[in-house]
Amino acid sequence: MLTVPIGIQILFAGILFFLGLIGLLVRRNMIFMLMSIEIMFNAAGLVFIIAGTHWRQPDGQVMFIFILAVTAVEVSIALALILQVYHHFKTLDADAINNLKDSN
């Protein structure tokens, strides 16, 4: 049985979440931004599992399954959008998609 204090476990999930947040803020390549969102989803699911194990309730694992379904939908839609963006703009740079901006 794991005897690591729950603070350390939550801290680990928090570090993963903020690594994903830094990746989302820093990177401009759309594949990398999507990967960072995945890291953040995974960290959020990890918190649910930690809490569910700590209080011995199955609800945490149920929530992780829902997160898994949402992630699968999000990834498939986002990758289809990335394919369309690449066909239109020939680049994956998120800063290149500025057609709505005034071009003075």
Partner: peptide, 29 residues
């Protein structure tokens, strides 16, 4: 964390299905 079912789901769906989708699109582009 004594959640073996979730561990299997993580390997099968996250590392198996979702990441393969990523790699497929990356290689296609």
């Amino acid at each position: 964390l004594s959640a073996p079912f979730i561990a299997a789901l993580e390997v099968i769906i996250y590392a198996g299905a979702i990441m393969v989708l990523f790699i497929f699109v990356t290689m296609m582009l």
